[in-house]
């Protein structure tokens, strides 16, 4: 059966076998440490590490490629905005005057409004750091979520005392969204089977066709949501936290080690950033 489902990784690795709470500790550590590292060399090293980890645990390359594609315009925007406009802040970080930054590109004076605007090397460099941090944070989500079986994920969050109703809504959306995407795909396929060559249409025509797709997709989603609700009720679901679980979620020694190591790294990272300026842009 070719039914869509939320992306999961089948490969069993040391990381994927960790409890979700241990992964969450790693997630938080990298987020905190990464947030403090504005230097693009440090940020890119962290990004490379997370990227390698993603590949290592088996996140499919097409998914990573999709993320890069989605993030590429954001990256360009970062380089552009920081390169051209973030002069005061960047100059302060590197300890020079705004006009002391190194010009990379200068727009011709004759250009209306933007003539004479200057893109700086330091600004572009800083923008690179921001992009690397953003992408790293984004990659942490699949790294931690995709490598966790959805049922284990629920259990981990419940053990962290997240209310069961919220956890269930989260885990249900993991299941429901792929169904909606499948519905959209099927409806668009249907349009093509009704003679609508979407690939040959202009933007306006496409918008018109997509607008029509909304009707069956919304109706289909509402119908499916109601069906799922009936099914859940029939399976004694009440959202009550007073429920039991098939599997236990005890932290194993490897999980404790990961949590402890995360705490140490987090503390050391924050200390080094605050006291030594480690990873700060323009610190050297």
């Amino acid at each position: 059966m070719n039914v869509p489902r939320f992306q999961t990784v089948a490969r069993s690795t040391v990381f994927s076998r960790l409890d979700f709470r241990a992964k969450l500790a790693i997630f938080l550590t990298l987020t905190v440490v990464g947030a403090g590292w504005s230097d693009p060399r440090h940020a890119s090293a962290l990004l490379a590490g997370v990227g390698v980890a993603c590949v290592g645990v088996g996140i499919p390359w097409p998914y990573l490629r999709l993320m890069l594609r989605v993030m590429a315009p954001f990256g360009l925007l970062m380089l552009f905005t920081h390169g051209f406009f973030n002069k005061e802040h960047v100059a302060r970080l590197v300890g020079v005057e705004a006009n002391g930054l190194t010009p990379l590109v200068t727009l011709p004076e004759a250009w209306w409004l933007i003539g004479g605007a200057q893109m700086t090397v330091e600004g572009v460099w800083y923008g690179t750091g921001v992009f690397c941090r953003s992408l790293m944070l984004l990659l942490l989500v699949p790294l931690c979520v995709f490598t966790t079986h959805p049922d284990r994920l629920v259990l981990g969050l419940v053990r962290l005392r997240v209310p069961y109703k919220i956890v269930f809504v989260f885990s249900s959306s993991l299941r429901f969204f792929p169904l909606i995407f499948d519905e959209i795909r099927a409806v668009m396929e249907t349009q093509r089977l009704r003679g609508y060559a979407l690939e040959e249409m202009g933007a306006l025509q496409r918008v018109r066709v997509y607008a029509r797709i909304a009707v069956p997709v919304i109706l289909g989603a509402m119908f499916k949501a109601q069906q799922i609700e009936v099914v859940l009720q029939s399976k004694a679901f009440s959202g009550s936290p007073a429920r039991t679980y098939l599997h236990d979620a005890r932290l194993r020694p490897s999980d404790w080690w990961a949590i402890a190591a995360s705490a140490v790294v987090c503390g050391a990272g924050v200390w080094a950033a605050v006291r030594l300026g480690f990873g700060r842009f323009g610190a050297d």
Binding site: R5, T8, H149, P150, D151, S172, R175, L179, K224, Q227, I228, V231, L232, K235, A236, F237, S238, S240, A242, R243, T244, Y245, L246
Partner: peptide, 20 residues
């Protein structure tokens, strides 16, 4: 739409868990 869990055993267990 009637299978709500991510593994066969959890699917069977789901209602039993809800019943506590």
């Amino acid at each position: 739409t009637q299978l709500v869990s991510a593994s066969v055993e959890n699917e069977v267990a789901f209602a039993l868990e809800n019943l506590g």
